[in-house]
């Protein structure tokens, strides 16, 4: 028997759960089950779902490639102004996504900071799938950095110190000790990042635009479908929810397995 929680916590906890679940119930209640198949398997819906999965997966990989080093530097080193750097890196969490999209536009857009450089290199980000990935990575990266940095701090440096005193080089320590130790944290961070990328909307419409098969992801498709077919939008939202739940479920399993290994 675990110690449990004080009983008075149960009421607010139940209220919180109801607050999150009731809207979900309301959505399910509105789904037009009769036409569900037709709505969900339409050409536009399938294109949007595939595009969402593809871009979110790519963004998650980018988040891992960039976020793991960031989290390691933030958790394992100290330098002047580190607190400020951490706050700035987490900025996309509080920035309204539409503003994030504008910021990306001012950076990677045709007339942006890097626009001309990219143009010379022959890279056109505007209205391309790459722009969607950039927008998703921008908003999702802090989720990975935040959860991985937490995991690194909780894991502590004991094992790393031992490995180092036994003669392991920094790279070996990082690869053989640090990473396996925080693998569950990395996985849940990646899942959070994926989920955030999947739901990303504001930065995408502002920065990437909306064209079927190229930049129109599920959230954008849902938003647009609402104009003519609110029921269809609801059905499509449900698909997005189910996909997200499946991914989170799979990753939780993976996480449990990873914990068993470490």
């Amino acid at each position: 028997m675990t110690p449990g929680v004080p009983r008075w916590l149960l009421l607010p906890a139940a209220l919180g759960a109801a607050f999150v679940l009731l809207p979900l119930v309301a959505i399910v209640a509105r789904v037009p089950w009769g036409d569900f198949d037709e709505l969900v398997t339409s050409e536009a819906s399938r294109e949007a779902l595939l595009l969402s999965l593809r871009t979110s997966a790519t963004s998650t990989v980018l988040c891992v490639l960039l976020g793991v080093p960031m989290a390691a530097v933030l958790a394992r080193t100290s330098f002047p102004g580190q607190g400020v750097v951490r706050s700035l890196v987490l900025l996309p969490l509080v920035l309204p996504p539409v503003v994030g999209g504008l910021a990306l536009l001012y950076t990677f857009g045709r007339r942006g900071l890097l626009g001309e450089t990219l143009d010379v290199l022959g890279v056109q980000v505007a209205f391309s799938t790459a722009a969607v990935v950039l927008a998703q990575t921008f908003v999702a990266l802090p989720f990975l950095v935040l959860s991985l940095e937490g995991a690194l701090r909780t894991a502590g440096e004991r094992y790393e110190l031992v490995a180092a005193t036994l003669g392991a080089r920094p790279t070996t320590v990082f690869r053989r000790v640090t990473l396996p130790l925080v693998l569950p944290g990395l996985l849940s961070g990646a899942v959070l990042a994926f989920a955030r990328a999947l739901g990303e909307f504001g930065a995408t419409v502002t920065f990437a635009g909306s064209l079927e098969g190229v930049t129109r992801t599920m959230p954008t498709q849902i938003y647009l479908l609402r104009e003519t077919d609110a029921d269809g939008a609801v059905a499509l939202s449900l698909v997005l929810v189910v996909v997200a739940v499946l991914v989170i479920g799979l990753a939780t399993r993976g996480r449990t397995a990873a914990r068993g290994l470490s």
């Binding site: 505007a126 419409v205 909306s210 064209l211």
Partner: peptide, 13 residues
């Protein structure tokens, strides 16, 4: 078009 937006504001932007 390279993009089909949801509102005039988005097109103008």
């Amino acid at each position: 078009p390279v993009s089909e937006e949801r509102s005039v504001t988005d097109v103008l932007g």
